[in-house]
Amino acid sequence: MTVNELIDKLELEVLNLEEGDRQIEGGYTGDLLSWVMGRAQSGDMWVTIMTNVNVIAVASLVDCACVVIAENAEIGDEVIAKAKAQGINLLRTPLSSYKICNEQILL
């Protein structure tokens, strides 16, 4: 599944989209950035409620296919700008982390 397909099917809000054709190869959810840094895999859809600027750095490091911010967590413009600068697909949903993962698996 591509990031574009994920956005369409789960009606995600697009905060920044650089590479909509990117394949989603797996998924990871977690909010402790250090933990995610060491465990998420390249190509993952990473679901988190964290929205500080380090999220973008971690997403770059692990080379996530996209970051999905759950529960419409508030996110600053500087974080979106950073996503743009680093070429990170940044999406958002009102669903909880549990729900969004569940729905993605069912696709």
Binding site: S34, A57, L61
Partner: peptide, 11 residues
């Protein structure tokens, strides 16, 4: 410390 190499371009 977790064994992750720094990427100066990111961090």
């Amino acid at each position: 410390i977790m064994d992750i190499k720094n990427r100066p371009d990111i961090f």
